[in-house]
Design a protein around this nucleic acid. Structure first.
Lengths: 240, 240
DNA sequence: TTTTTATTGTATTATTTTTATACAATAAAA
DNA sequence: TTTTATTGTATAAAAATAATACAATAAAAA
C-alpha cells in the first residue's frame, strides 16, 4: 500500500476539480499558483482514500480549498492517457528550485509516488463565489479566481480539463438547471444572463432570455434591488 | 506493482463495458455468464495496463470479447463507491465451487488482488450485432445478448452500470448521431425507429420520425428492400 | 419640478420547429 | 382485379423560439 504524507490513498488515481464562480459579470475558475519558482499553476486536486467514495473525496478536496461543505459537484470525464504523469512538471520544479541541493529523485518515496502514471477523474463544481474563502495549502503561493477565457497555462493537462468542464457545463446547464448554484440566494435576471453568455460565449436577446428563465417556473420574485443607478431597478429572484 | 496472471495492470481500477446491439427489433446488451456454479452474470470488463491509454484498454477489452477492432465507444461515468469490491461475489463463488477443497483465500494473490476496492470506468459501445462473434474467455460459460429491459441480475453493480449507460445513450443519441453504429451499412428507417423506441421506451409517430431523421441530412437513400411482405417495400439508407 | 438617460418588464408579432392528420403509392397474396 | 399492410410525402395545426415594440421607472441633470 503506497503512502503519501502518511495517508492511505489509492495509487495512480487523482481527482481534478474545475470550480466555477461568477463575479463582476465574469465566469471564473479557481486556480492555485504553487509557491515554487517557475510559475506553476494547477487545478485544485487530490487523491482518494482507500475507504472513501470518489464523490466524497471530491467534496473533501474542495472543502479543504474553499471552506464550503455542500458544494454542487458533477463528475464529468476521465483523463486517462498513458503518458499522463507529473514527471515533466516535477523535474522542472526540482531543476528550478533544488538544483544546488542534489535532490534525490531515485529513492524519494514522494517523487516515486507522484511521478507515476495517473488517471484523473474530472469534477466540476458550481459555487457562490462570495461564500468561498480560498485556503492555501502548504504548497500554494496563491489560490485565485481566473476568467475562464483567460487561464494561465497549467501543469499536466489542466487547461484541457478546464475546457472539457466548460463544454460539459454547456451541455448540462439547461437540463440540470444548475446555474443558480453560481449565485447568492438573491440575484437579478441580468446576473443569470451574464453567466449564460460567459458559458456559451455568445449574446442572448434580453427579453427572450428573461421569458425563458421565468417560464421554467423555478424562481420566486422578491423585492426590487435599488443600486443607485439612474434607471429602473430590477427585481431580485430566488429559487423556489 | 501488483500482478494478475503475470500482467502489469494498474491496481484498483477496472473498466466495465455496456455493449449495445440491435436485433429483431430489440435493443440488447452483451453479458457473460461465468462458468462457475451459482448463476453469475457480468458485464464485459477488464483492467488497464500501466502503459495503455484508458480508451485503448476499453478497445482491447472489447476486441477480445467481440472480435471487433473499430468499435464506437464512449466513456460515460465513474463508479467509485468505497464499498465497491468483489468480495461478496468471490466468497459466494468459492463457497459454491470450492467448499470441499479448503480454498486458501488469505494468501492467494489472485483473491487479494481481485477483492480490493475497485473504481470502475464505465464505457458504452454501439456495435453492429451481426459483425460480433462473441468470444468466451476462460471463465465464461456463455457470452450472449440480453434485451436491455430484461437483464439478469449481475455481479457487483452491473445492473446499475447498464441503466446509467442507457440513460447516457438517451442523452447522447440526438447530439452525437451515433445510432447508426448499431446498424449494418444498409438499413431501413423502421430499424432506426425501433432503436429509438427501445432507447426511450416510448413510441414515435412514424411519419414525423422519418422526416426528423431525413432532415438531419446525414443519410443517403439507396435501393428498395424487397422482403416478400405483401406491402410497399421500404428504401434502404446508408450514412453519407 | 420637469426632462433626460439607461435600463427593466411585458406584450405582441413573426418565424421556426414540432406534432397531428390525410392520402396516394405499392408489394404480394387472395 | 381486389385486398391488405405498410411506406413515402404533403399539409395543417399547435407549440416553441426569436424579433420587435413600448410603457415603466430610478436617479441625475436641467
Amino acid at each position: 500500500m503506497e503512502v503519501l504524507n502518511g495517508k492511505n490513498y489509492i495509487n495512480q488515481i487523482a481527482i481534478d476539480c474545475v470550480v466555477f464562480g461568477y463575479e463582476d459579470g465574469q465566469l471564473k475558475i479557481l486556480i492555485s499558483q504553487l509557491k515554487y519558482k517557475g510559475d506553476f499553476y494547477a487545478l485544485p486536486n487530490g487523491f482518494i482514500f482507500q475507504e472513501e467514495n470518489t464523490d466524497a473525496a471530491a467534496h473533501r478536496i474542495l472543502q479543504e480549498r474553499t471552506g464550503l461543505k455542500d458544494i454542487y459537484l458533477e463528475e464529468f470525464k476521465v483523463f486517462g492517457k498513458a503518458d499522463r504523469n507529473n514527471k515533466a512538471f516535477l523535474d522542472k520544479l526540482i531543476e528550478l528550485n533544488y538544483a544546488d541541493t542534489a535532490f534525490e529523485q531515485t529513492h524519494n518515496p514522494m517523487y516515486e509516488w507522484l511521478s507515476k502514471r495517473f488517471i484523473s477523474i474530472g469534477y466540476y463544481a458550481l459555487v457562490n463565489i462570495k461564500a468561498v474563502e480560498p485556503q492555501l495549502t502548504e504548497i500554494d503561493k496563491s489560490l485565485e479566481w481566473y476568467n475562464i477565457h483567460e487561464l494561465p497555462p497549467m501543469i499536466m493537462d489542466g487547461n484541457e480539463i478546464a475546457q472539457a468542464a466548460l463544454k460539459t457545463l454547456q451541455r448540462d446547464i439547461d437540463e440540470k438547471l444548475n446555474v443558480f448554484n453560481l449565485l447568492p440566494e438573491k440575484f437579478t435576471m441580468k446576473e443569470v444572463q451574464d453567466i449564460y453568455e460567459s458559458v456559451f460565449e455568445r449574446a442572448f436577446v434580453r427579453t427572450n432570455f428573461q421569458k425563458k428563465i421565468l417560464d421554467l417556473n423555478v424562481l420566486e420574485r422578491l423585492e426590487k434591488k435599488f443600486t443607485g443607478a439612474k434607471n429602473k431597478a430590477p427585481y431580485l429572484y430566488k429559487l423556489k
